[in-house]
Design a protein around this nucleic acid. Sequence first.
DNA 1: CGCGAGCTTGATGCCGATCAATGCATGTGG
DNA 2: CCACATGCATTGATCGGCATCAAGCTCGCG
Lengths: 232, 232
Amino acid sequence: MACSSCNLRELCLPVSMSPEQMDRVEAMVATRRTVARGDALFRTGDAFTSLYAIRTGFFKTCISSEDGRDQVTGFQMAGELLGLDGIGTDRHTCDAVSLEDSLVCVIPYHMLEDLSRELSDLQRHFHRIMSREIVRDHGVMLLLGSMRAEERLAAFLLNLTQRLQTRGFSSSSLVLRMTREEIGSYLGLKLETVSRAFSKFQEDGLLEVKQRQIRVLAPEALQALVNGSTGY
Amino acid sequence: MACSSCNLRELCLPVSMSPEQMDRVEAMVATRRTVARGDALFRTGDAFTSLYAIRTGFFKTCISSEDGRDQVTGFQMAGELLGLDGIGTDRHTCDAVSLEDSLVCVIPYHMLEDLSRELSDLQRHFHRIMSREIVRDHGVMLLLGSMRAEERLAAFLLNLTQRLQTRGFSSSSLVLRMTREEIGSYLGLKLETVSRAFSKFQEDGLLEVKQRQIRVLAPEALQALVNGSTGY
DNA sequence: CGCGAGCTTGATGCCGATCAATGCATGTGG
DNA sequence: CCACATGCATTGATCGGCATCAAGCTCGCG
């Protein structure tokens, strides 16, 4: 259960620490929490106290405006951090909902503050994580602002397979944890459009689609879609 | 030229510090830099060394993918921070282009790291700023993913007026620093669509539009657009 | 077995992109 | 000072991609 023996330590917060630094990090991450599929780790408006590192499982984060409009802002998998949204206002500004039974490591934020004042490596790494989150969001803005339906889905799938690969899974075969509707919400599309794009990819031999079982047959073709297809 | 006498200090990085803390912050923010209209403060790929606080002026940040696609990811005004994108990879991931002659305060990042390890107020505030940036981006994702053209423009205008108001300007009268095309890029629309939406708002008596001179006549109506108009 | 949640597929319509022309300010050189 | 160029904005006409509406279909589960 210790960070030092966690197979995600290279992806998570405590990257490249000395053994003694690691001890202090482990003291900070003392508690774990299970979240059953469908339950929320936190919800909009909840008081912010901690960040959460996903040990196992899969989450979505979503926001909703006063009227019913809502939007999935991201999908998070093992090794990724949840809760950064809460730092700014001391309240969470989105819901984090588990898409499968999950286990998270609880990182009390005030302890992270204290410790990262002492361990500059930790400080540096935490800042990097926040910065990368900002950069990721910019990428999504590009996707939502300028790509067409199939391009969006291609980008989404490549992003997923890449992250799975980093975690040692096959880059060609994956099981979607989320519904077509959730994918659509993330990509700014309706579920029917997502479904049609999947079918199209299958017709064209880019994918093999069996419900949520996906096999990527032609990653280069997906990549080509994401890049050049504005058709110059 | 000192932070302590800067009229933006309540918006910027050095919020709520003791005089002696403020001295140390000022020592960190030793240099200023002017950026002529149209010039870049930094560009994608530039080495990341510093954050920049806008003293006077106006910027846009934009990213572009390998093919020509590009996207304005934000507009920044006095008191706001630029360059957070660079922390994650030690290189900037977007262009920051000045939309009018501007002056920025240069904050060497390694000094900010050092100082925020000593001043927990500074540390806390810096984290808040990054977190708010993430939350802002999520708001833009909601806008891009689920709003229609006029709703997007209404949200954009309200956001602008609100930020201007915080800085002591009128909330009803503003001069746009950016072109229709830049607004369109930010909102995921074409410039013609932006132009039409402006005209529509003027017809409906919500705005008075003279090129880039905008007068907001009915802010509540704009707000209503942003909220309820999904038409249930 | 039958129900329901999620997925697929088809038909139609609308919003915003695209193409194209004109208008309007600012600036430059003759 | 005017003729002309240039960049930006407006407006109209047409087109296309995605949303919407509407059936079926599949699969897991009580």
